[in-house]
Amino acid sequence: MKHLPPAYFALVMATGVVSIAAWDFGLPVIAMGLFVFNLAAYVVLACLNVLRSVRYPGLFFADMTDHRLGPGFFTAVAASCILGNQCLLMARSLAAATVFLVLGTALWIGLTYTIFTALTVKRDKPPLEKGLTGAWLIAVVSTQSIAVLAAQIASEWPQPLRLELNFFALSMWLWGGMLYIWIISLIFYRYTFFAFSPDDLTPPYWINMGAMAISTLAGARLVQNTPDAPFLASLLPFLKGFTVLYWATGTWWIPMLLVLGVWRHLIRRFPLRYDPLYWGAVFPLGMYTVATKQMAVALDLPFLTPLPPVVFAAALAAWTLAFIGLASELVRKLVRPV
């Protein structure tokens, strides 16, 4: 608990999106099993974070104002909203989904203006190559997770609340896109103009793709909601265009990240061992699966339908390996030799 990584809610993010993908592919046993596991994981992590903030407030808030660790707190926002989506899809509980939307939005507001204000006004700041990681894009993922859940709930709410909630989802979608442009520009600059070692290529760099995947999903949801909101219908070409832009950008990142992974582990011989940050690499694969499947339906692109099953298989395999790593780590720490 004392040294709990702030980004550990990525476990819930990854499990939730793989569960949703399984549900979309008609695998209810896997989907519900992961849903139950996710509820337990969310409760455990929430309790540990609350206890850590009470028992070790110095460490907790020092992490929140740290350039490398602070953005990891945004995983709590995305985890809440993804769990809300699971509640709506699998438990058919609109009330639970709404509670998670309110909770996620409250966390997003508090964390956004606490973390970014602290990073702006603090005196001692690291150089760009030391302080910037792919984890910064979790701020984008958290923003878009609110847009996805709000758009999903909007299709269930009665009018006129449906109109306002769709506008809220649209606003969050646009803000998330703008935030991605800001941050990815710095990340690409860091990639190409600073020395890069295997240690620097941490698993959260897969969020480069995951942030675009969840932006694609939010755009597809908004396109599907156009009959319920006239202002969305008037923006339909814009919504479709940017949804494809996000999907194409996320797709571009996949080969690049695979090549960098080969360079890290095969060429530079960086050891492959369990790290909580690897959940941040599982999440993008699951999200790309769900986003591509939904975009193919929303934009009537049937030629994309063979792609999601392939990526889903990779996401499920990655989740299984990460879970085995987590279980092995827990056993190693908890079991003492006689």
Rank of each mutant, 00 (worst) to 15 (best):
F60G: 03
F60E: 02
F60Q: 04
F61S: 04
F61W: 14
A62V: 09
D63S: 10
D63V: 06
M64N: 06
M64V: 13
M64F: 10
H67E: 05
H67L: 01
L69S: 08
G70D: 04
P71Y: 12
P71D: 10
P71N: 13
P71K: 14
G72M: 12
G72V: 12
G72Y: 09
G72S: 12
F73G: 01
F73W: 05
F73V: 04
F74C: 07
T75M: 10
T75D: 02
A76E: 00
V77L: 08
V77Q: 02
A78D: 00
A78M: 07
A79K: 09
C81L: 15
I82Q: 01
I82W: 07
I82K: 05
I82E: 00
I82A: 00
L83M: 11
L83C: 02
L83V: 03
G84Y: 06
N85T: 13
Q86P: 06
C87S: 11
C87G: 08
C87T: 07
L88N: 08
L88T: 12
L88A: 13
M90Q: 12
M90T: 10
A91H: 10
R92M: 12
R92T: 13
R92L: 14
A95F: 15
A96P: 01
T98S: 15
T98H: 13
F100V: 00
L101Y: 08
V102W: 11
L103K: 04
G104T: 10
G104A: 12
T105M: 13
A106N: 06
W108G: 00
W108Y: 14
G110R: 13
L111Q: 08
T112M: 13
T114Q: 03
I115K: 00
F116P: 02
F116G: 03
F116A: 06
F116C: 06
A118H: 04
L119V: 14
V121D: 01
K122P: 00
K122M: 05
K122H: 04
R123W: 08
R123V: 02
R123K: 13
K125Y: 02
K125Q: 11
E129F: 04
E129N: 07
G131D: 01
L132S: 01
L132K: 03
G134L: 09
G134M: 09
G134K: 09
A135Y: 05
A135H: 05
A135Q: 07
W136M: 08
L137P: 00
L137I: 15
I138H: 03
I138W: 08
I138Q: 04
A139F: 14
V140M: 03
V140W: 01
V141W: 05
V141F: 10
S142E: 03
T143V: 11
Q144D: 09
Q144W: 09
S145E: 07
S145T: 15
I146V: 15
I146T: 09
I146R: 07
